[in-house]
Structures are given as structure tokens and as C-alpha cells.
Design a protein around this nucleic acid. Structure first.
Lengths: 287, 287
DNA sequence: TGACGAAAAGAAAATAATTTACGCCACATC
DNA sequence: GATGTGGCGTAAATTATTTTCTTTTCGTCA
């Protein structure tokens, strides 16, 4: 942050208009680097001449040089705004920063919370499962879908259900050779809990993916995986939590493939090529 | 290295002079970002017009925009762990680190590539849309689903289709008051391209969400949103790209809600409470 | 109190940079 | 060999930036 720091240090020594400009730059550097000198001058209440002089006074070759270097500096570390809920009329740039920060935070927190032992147990269970059932509702249903997509790519006998009746119907036919995965961020989704309970009763290995804490769903699972839990923020919805859950799914899947590389990778590559072959643009172009 | 990657990928498709330019950029990007368009044209053996056209063909606003984003990209410290593919028998801890790094990188790269103008245009289009159609196949279909979940929460007349026949059927009935969103990481999914083309023909506003570069899908959209593009890595699948796409969806949605706070937030809160009321554990516990 | 000078800052002119319109040329097609 | 198409450069138009010149403001000193 050397450029912005240098500006901040000099703030008191600057002429009034330059100071206004400097303050604008410190406040909204991201926007500033996208502007022309005229836009910047107008928005900061000065003139193009002042901006130009300002850049030279800081020993940049010219305005463009200044803009480039500032852009490079800003790219170094993304702004850290914390777990914000949606509020009215935020500048778009701030929304972008806030969401990015939320998501990054969510992923790193989740990584930190991961229990390698549980992860290994989950991978082992998935690997030796005869059949894999996935349960989830709403957004967590989508996570389950995603996991499903991945599992069938490596030829696993997986199923995914978001219909409560089907969930139970399927769970009822599981055996002790099977695995059921219940996904629910809150860990309190009744349908998912019931499906996992039912699976457990049939002797299946139950894996839960919930937010960190002692949630009901985790209570019914023998293998528990957790994602970071941020304060709710009903407006924000489940954006960050969904990222975290996908993150866990990705790690599970990658761990699974990596540990049984020779078995799964050929299937993975085959599915990749087949999808290309049968859906790719090159062979079927419509004129 | 999204921008340079995108250039590298397109290298074979470029016209001779553009190609020379591209090769120069790939070889000496650091120098390139310090030059004016004339210098760059001369040193790469082309003309200013060619450079300008080149930048636009990659969907940058103009040469300056290109230079700024490239400078920002070059300023990024090389990540400790780079976009890794799945390999055999890695220690689990390393897998976790690698995936986390991949995902973080994917999000920050995508954020850096976001074009606020396009984003604003997309938000405005979505807001005033009479009807919103979402198209996607495979994993991108899931992203479309996710967006759909969000849009119906705020009472938008949205639909999501992954069946190609339904996509076209629905697209055919769009009007110039409607919006169609095509999602495809590769930007080359034929079904999605056709659906978006059809929508465009009906006069609907077309929004694309693809990896960065000049992809076919983006070519058929009037509003183009991009995610970071990493080298393929077929085993890794589309984990990081999916994160990036969701990231864009989240930003779109949050921006939409934030800009029209009074209209959307009550609906959002209502949907939140209703889901709680009708599916929550507290009222329906099974003993 | 008024005159002078220094410095700040804008207007406008000058310059530089970038985009666009236009047209030429090469190559392909019939 | 005529005609069309598309790549590409030149130059004109546009836009952006810098510099010069002028006005204004404020402080100092007679």
C-alpha cells in the first residue's frame, strides 16, 4: 500500500483541492483507477490540471503511469470487508468487495475447521460403499446434486433426492454396506434429518455436512463434516455457506479420487471425453 | 493469469497480425503494459488499429482498460499453490491446501476481471425484466438453478431450463421486455448458445456468463460477464470454475437487491420467514 | 486601507493518445 | 479473369492529457 500510504502521509501538506482529490483517492481507489482524468477531476471536485499536477508532484511520469501503478497496488491484496449483510444502495464496487471477502473468509474458515480424521473416514466410506444416497433440501439440495454429478462421473452408484418421500423410500432400502450423506447448512432441516435417521436405522453409514456446532443432523451421523458458520443475515441468504459446502464436497471428491487414483481417474477421463464427444460444439455445429 | 491464459488459448484462432501481437504480449507482458498503443503496435509489428481491435475482441472496453487489467494481473503475487490438477496419492492435507488455494484464486481472479459497467447493465436488465429465462447444462445448469432460487425469492418471474427443447421453446416466447441468461463455463455449449441466440432473435436482452475470453456464447450476448479461466485439467473438473460462476451470481443478485432495496428486501424476508414457518423443525418435530 | 506579490486553481490551448471510418490489397470463389 | 470477402493500415475524428496562461485569493507591508 505504498502509494496510498504516501498519499495519506502527505495529506496535511497538500493544497486544498489536491487534498480533496487525495481524500477521494484514499476512499475509493478502486473506482479511481477506472476513471479518466476528467472523470476523476469532476468526481473529486477539482480540475484535470490539478489531477495532472498532483500525479507529477508524487513523481509519477504522468496520470496514466499513476493509474497503472495504483491498479497494480490494489491488485495485491483484495479489500477486506467483513461478513456484511445486504444493505441499501451500496456502491457496486463495495458490494463486490464485500461478497468477495465473505466468500474468501468462508472458505478459509471452513478449511481451518476441517477434521482430517473425519474426512478420511468419509472418503473410506464413500469408496467402499455399494450405494450412496444424497439428501438435501433447497440450496443444500443443489450441493447434493453437485456431489451426485461428481460421483457418477467416477461410476459410483449414487442417487440424490430432494423429495422427502423419495428420500425415505430410498433410505429404507439401504443396507450396512451403503452410505447416506445428509447435507443441511443449518443442520435442522427436518426432511434431511429424518432421511438420515432412517438410513442409520437400516445400518448405513451416515455422513453429515452442516455448519459447525452440534446440530441435529450431525447428531444422527457417524461421520460429521463441518463448514464455517457465519452469523445468519437472512437477506444475504446462504451464499457463503453454499460456497463452504461445495468446498467440502470438492475436497471429499478430490481426496476420494486421489486415494484411489488408478480406479477412478480413467473413468473421470472417459466421462470427460464422452461429454465432449457427444455434446461438443465442433462436431455438431449448426450453420 | 486469466488474461494471458485466455490469449494463449485463442492463439491459434487469431489473425496473423493479431497473433504476432498476442505472442509479443505473452512474451513481454511487463513491458507491454508500460507502452502506449502506438509503441505496442510498432514493437509487435502491427498497427494501432489492430491493437485496438484486438483489445475489443477480448471484450475489454478499450486499450486502456486492457492495459489496466493486465497490469493488475501481473501485479498478483504468484500463488503458493497454483491451479493444480488431481494427482495420485497426495497426502490429504496437501489436497485440502491445493483445493483451497485453487478456490481462493478463482474467486480473486474473477473479482479482478469483473467489469462494473457490464455488471450494472446486467442488474438493470434483470430489474426491469418482465420475465427471466436461465439456461445452462451440466454444472452450469446447477448455477442456473441457484440463480433461479435466488430470483424467485424476490418475486421475479424466472424460469430455468436444462432441457434443450424446453430452452428453445421458452426462448421462442420471449419478447424485448425479457431477459435471457446463458451460463456456460467453456462458452461453447451448443444447447446454451442456441437458446441464447433464439432469445436474442426474439428481442430479449441476452446476458452471458462464461470464462474470460471471446467465447461463442459471449458473442451472442449483449451483456457479457466473465469468470477467471484456468487451464483445463480434466480431472479437476469444473470445481474452481463453478465457484467463480456462483460468485458472479451472488454479486449480481446482491447488487440487484441492494439497488432496489425497498422493493426486494421485504420479499426476501418474507420468503425467509415462510420457509422457516412451513419447513422449520420447531413446529413439526417428530418425536 | 490599499497595493503588491505569491501561490492555487481553473480555462483553454496545445499536444498526445486512441478509436473509427475508409479504402486498399490479397486471397478465395465461381 | 471477375467478383466478393476479410484483414489490415492510413488517416481523420474523437477523446484524453498536459501545459500555458489567466484569474482569483490571501497575506504582507507600506
Amino acid at each position: 500500500m505504498s502509494i496510498l500510504n504516501a498519499i495519506r502521509e502527505k495529506l496535511d501538506d497538500l493544497h486544498p483541492k489536491e487534498r480533496e482529490l487525495a481524500e477521494f483517492l484514499l476512499e475509493r481507489p478502486q473506482q479511481a483507477v477506472q476513471m479518466t482524468i476528467l472523470e476523476l477531476a469532476q468526481q473529486s471536485g477539482s480540475s484535470t490540471a490539478t489531477v495532472s499536477r498532483f500525479c507529477r508532484s508524487f513523481h509519477f511520469q504522468n496520470f496514466t503511469d499513476f493509474k497503472m501503478r495504483l491498479a497494480a497496488e490494489l491488485a495485491q491484496q483484495p479489500a477486506q470487508v467483513q461478513y456484511q449483510d445486504i444493505v441499501a444502495g451500496n456502491p457496486l464496487q463495495e458490494i463486490v468487495s464485500a461478497i468477495t471477502a465473505n466468500h474468501l473468509r468462508s472458505l478459509t474458515d471452513t478449511t481451518r475447521l476441517l477434521d482430517l480424521t473425519q474426512l478420511r473416514a468419509a472418503i473410506a466410506a464413500l469408496h467402499s460403499a455399494r450405494r450412496i444416497d444424497l439428501y438435501g433440501a433447497g440450496t443444500s439440495g443443489m450441493i447434493a446434486q453437485d456431489f451426485f454429478h461428481k460421483l457418477i462421473r467416477i461410476g459410483k452408484a449414487a442417487n440424490v433426492y430432494s423429495d422427502p418421500h423419495l428420500q425415505i423410500t430410498s433410505a429404507a432400502s439401504l443396507t450396512d454396506q451403503d452410505v447416506a450423506v445428509g447435507i443441511s447448512y443449518s443442520g435442522e432441516t427436518l426432511e434431511t434429518i429424518n432421511a438420515l435417521r432412517c438410513a442409520t436405522e437400516q445400518g448405513a453409514t451416515a455422513i453429515s455436512i452442516t455448519k459447525f456446532g452440534n446440530t441435529s443432523l450431525a447428531g444422527h451421523a457417524s461421520i460429521r463434516l463441518f463448514t464455517s458458520s457465519s452469523e445468519a443475515g437472512m437477506r444475504r441468504g446462504d451464499m457463503a455457506s453454499r460456497m463452504a459446502q461445495l468446498h467440502v464436497v470438492d475436497i471429499l471428491f478430490t481426496g476420494l479420487v486421489s486415494e484411489h487414483f488408478d480406479e477412478y481417474v480413467p473413468r473421470l477421463e472417459s466421462s470427460f471425453h464422452m461429454v465432449r464427444r457427444y455434446t461438443g460444439k465442433e462436431e455438431r455445429e449448426i450453420p
